[in-house]
Amino acid sequence: MKKTRWLFYTVIVSIVMLLSGCDSSLVVLNPKGPAAKTQSDTIIFSILMMAFVLIVVYILYVFMLVKYRASKTSDDYEPPHMEGSKLLEFIWTLIPIIIVVILSVVTVKSTNAVENVPAGYENEKPLVIYASSSNWKWHFSYPEENIETVNYVNIPENRPVEFRLYSYGPITSFWVPQLGGQKYAMSDMVTTLHLLASNEGSFMGKNSNFSGKGFAQMEFEVLSMTPTAYTDWVKEVKDTAPKLTESEFNSLVKTSFVGRKSFTSTHLEFSPPPMTSEEMGDMNGKTDENTNKTDSTDMKDMENMKHDN
């Protein structure tokens, strides 16, 4: 069958193209940090395993189709009755189980790795950045430096960064493919994403979760710089940028699109983020105190989140 061969070649060519990895436009397979590296390795490993499965199936498939077509048998050939074979069925149950077990181990290990601070950096104090989305832009608050940016985020190279994600509206997903996989930003809970850039560089970041009209434009730049350049930049922002007032922040949240902005204070004081999942876990069975706190936060969020059409 011409078709089969064509398909077969497509798959082989695709795999080769994928594995060559030198096509740098495949950003997911062109990692620039430990989390993305782990993920890229996991992906390539799984492609190899799956290529093995595909090849076995395709060889059997082509063999059966070529050998047993009616045109190759005599007219009076009567195919036999075959119930099945315990041994064969056992084999093709066992081998997939083995493959799944191997992949499960890899998955659990790599998931643990990317959910935590990258190995080797556990003792380093991470840079905390709150990244929050409001319709179709990203706010980045640096609580320690007491600065805030919109639609761009600068980080020091080779230092773990702890992004705390939440949203002033629909669920968004914070994704910087070359530094690591994505995570949701939601309105009622803070999620945490650990990233690290191994070197200097500019990386594309975007919201990957559909969130309405301006979703396609919801991109930002992550700029990884040397520690000294980073300190200089923080100082420069502090010297030149204005303060972020509550009314300015509220009008920012309501605006559909804005360019890049920098401020010398954060919105965290007057518009605090929701709780993290750990805090939510602690809250179970505790006093009303915390609950009241959430409610007031919610009310405040709601006022901020009036949708503009």
Binding site: V53, V106, Q182
Partner: peptide
């Protein structure tokens, strides 16, 4: 087989929504 690849949580962080 791509379903199996997507099933791996760590890798899915890179495939999700794409």
């Amino acid at each position: 087989v791509t379903g199996v690849m997507l099933a791996m949580a760590s890798a899915d962080y890179q495939y999700h929504n794409t």
